[in-house]
């Protein structure tokens, strides 16, 4: 019997099905293998600003498990095991994220390319996007270039105090306990993003925002993070890293996250030793990208809210 309350079958789900098929064809043609990795694991990311869902059995018996915020760590283990180029389209979960552009459960497209440079990967992201959208070339800007052009400041060298002052002149911000990355991010979001063209890449981020990417000197010798962000119609659609393969450096970054988590009173997260072991065993030099698949559908379907492209979004 038909459900009285059931709305008309959403066109957005037909779009989703056809784009999924198209993306799978795109990677199959390039010899990139589709993989699946677990959504439930005993470890999760240490990122200060990512909150995982913790899952337990109904009777609260161990083990304590986490829904994955992205398939990154597991996919890196596959790469270290010799998988070659791989991609995954699956669900990822981030607690406390619901907005016009966020649903706590979302679809992520993530892929890794051994032997690719960051520029090679930007080329491939561009090929995928132009293939799906059939439009023109995507412009590339460095992070530093945008800050110098629109705000006349150098994001790689500016001190916290001066940054705080500049930010206060431009944006009404409550409180003053923000760090350099927070201020840069606010300026990026409120003062630079509105100036960006409909589609562009931003790359070479400040080293403090490296996350899991390699930090290397740019043409002027300034150490910058080898990562990019693809903006589509004002949304962060995809990010890419030239992946850090140095296990010691990776451990130091995890420990830095944990120290910051402790300062902020956030729950302690055990470091994912399996992921570090994979780096120690030898992660091939590679570049990897993660793309918000639901947001891609928003662009293709001209939707304003992520809830419009998901069958049953959380309230």
């Amino acid at each position: 019997m038909a459900d009285r309350e059931h709305p008309a079958f959403p066109e957005s789900l037909r779009l989703r099905a056809s784009v999924l098929a198209e993306v799978r064809r795109f990677f199959a043609e390039r010899g990139v293998m589709e993989v699946e990795t677990p959504l439930l694991r005993s470890h999760t990311v240490t990122d200060v600003h990512l909150q995982s869902f913790e899952v337990r059995a109904h009777d609260h018996s161990p083990p304590r498990l986490f829904l994955q915020t992205s398939p990154e760590y597991a996919m890196k283990r596959l790469l270290a095991a010799g998988s070659g180029p791989i991609y995954q389209i699956g669900k990822a979960f981030r607690a406390k994220e619901r907005s016009r552009l966020h649903n706590p459960e979302f679809t992520i497209l993530e892929w890794y390319r051994p032997g690719f440079s960051l520029a090679d990967l930007m080329d491939e992201v561009e090929q995928l996007i132009t293939h799906l959208l059939c439009r023109q070339k995507i412009i590339r800007y460095t992070y530093g270039e945008l800050f110098r052009k629109y705000l006349n400041l150098d994001p790689h060298s500016i001190g916290l105090q001066e940054l705080q002052q500049r930010c206060a002149e431009l944006i009404d911000v409550s409180g003053a306990d923000l760090d350099t990355t927070d201020y840069l991010q606010l300026l990026m979001d409120q003062k630079i993003e509105p100036m960006l063209p409909d589609r562009c890449f931003v790359y070479q981020y400040p080293s403090a925002q490296a996350a899991l990417s390699v930090v290397a000197p740019d043409v002027d010798g300034v150490p910058v993070a080898q990562r990019f962000e693809l903006y589509l119609e004002g949304m962060e659609l995809a990010n890419g890293y030239f992946e850090l393969t140095d296990a010691a450096e990776q451990r130091a970054r995890f420990e830095c996250d944990l120290a910051r988590r402790q300062q902020l009173g956030l729950p302690e997260i055990p470091i994912d030793e399996d992921m570090l072991a994979a780096l120690e065993a030898g992660l091939p030099s590679c570049a990897g990208a993660a793309l918000g698949f639901d947001r891609l559908l928003m662009v293709l379907g001209e939707s304003r809210d992520i809830g419009d492209v998901i069958s049953y979004p959380l309230d």
């Binding site: 990122d47 600003h49 990512l50 406390k96 994220e97 907005s99 552009l101 966020h102 944006i171 009404d172 911000v173 409550s174 409180g175 306990d177 923000l178 990355t181 927070d182 991010q185 606010l186 990026m188 979001d189 409120q190 925002q209 996350a211 962000e229 962060e236 990010n239």
Partner: peptide
């Protein structure tokens, strides 16, 4: 909320006394 960054709320207020409308960002 940028990918791995701090989340902020951009809030537009109206002052109920003088009608002034302005925007403030909260962590």
């Amino acid at each position: 909320k940028p990918g791995k960054g701090q989340a902020f709320n951009r809030v537009k207020f109206r002052n109920l006394r003088n009608g002034r409308v302005w925007e403030r960002t909260f962590k």
